[in-house]
Design a protein around this nucleic acid. Structure first.
Lengths: 110, 110
DNA sequence: AAAATTGTTCGCGATTCGCGTACCTTTAAT
DNA sequence: ATTAAAGGTACGCGAATCGCGAACAATTTT
């Protein structure tokens, strides 16, 4: 799974194997091994690759299929901030209501 | 890092080494090695551990420090949904404005 | 078409894995 | 209090896997 993800991400960015190897300070053949599935990257390498590609380790490992995670706001199983300030329970509720109301209005406009 | 995280999460849940070992189908000593730092789990094991603990691999690996990720809404580097429907760019902008305005009003109320 | 860059594969030595085992500590049962 | 059971820690062993360098093919650049 990770080999597929790495290969996709690298090609999308048009980066060479050598470039990535240089960024992580590993041999080209080592990184090539990750993509071919011949080798598995260390946990440390996985972290660095996620950072380099601007994605999450969950995506690289295939825990999730979203390169940028998708968040369902009605499941408050996570924390949100605006301008660094955490949202309160109430604010989240109002926010969801705001979106729902707006959508309801749009629907009738048609 | 991962050893520290695993240890914390397990203790918080009051699970035994054996219990986790059974869940992942590995030897108790193998999992114990993860917590002591004597061994590193395979990528597959990391995935399963994240699922078992209901957290993310990013947290286990120390990419993030939030067991439940914190999302800054003004960085739209991710996707959001309400009732399964993705939010549009505009909706996000309005939503942030909504929160900011509300906070501004609160401030003056005091 | 020659040179340079990129990508693929593989053998080697070194490292690290997972397991079983042994042992100590803590908890539960009698 | 004594014993049994369960939880936790440490380590040796054989097997598996790592990272690297090297050799070579494929592609791109000059």
């Amino acid at each position: 799974m990770i080999s597929k993800r790495l290969s996709e991400l690298r090609k999308k960015r048009q980066w060479s194997l050598q470039y990535i190897a240089d960024q992580l300070n590993i041999a080209k053949s080592t990184y090539a091994g990750y993509e071919s599935g011949y080798r598995q990257p260390s946990l440390e390498a996985v972290k660095e690759l996620a950072t380099l590609f601007g994605t999450t380790t969950d995506y690289l490992l295939g825990v999730t299929n979203d390169e940028q995670p998708t968040i369902e706001l009605t499941n408050a199983a996570f924390h949100m901030t605006v301008d660094g300030e955490p949202l309160t329970e109430d604010e989240i509720i109002q926010l969801i209501a705001f979106i729902r109301t707006k959508r309801e209005l749009e629907k009738h406009k048609k």
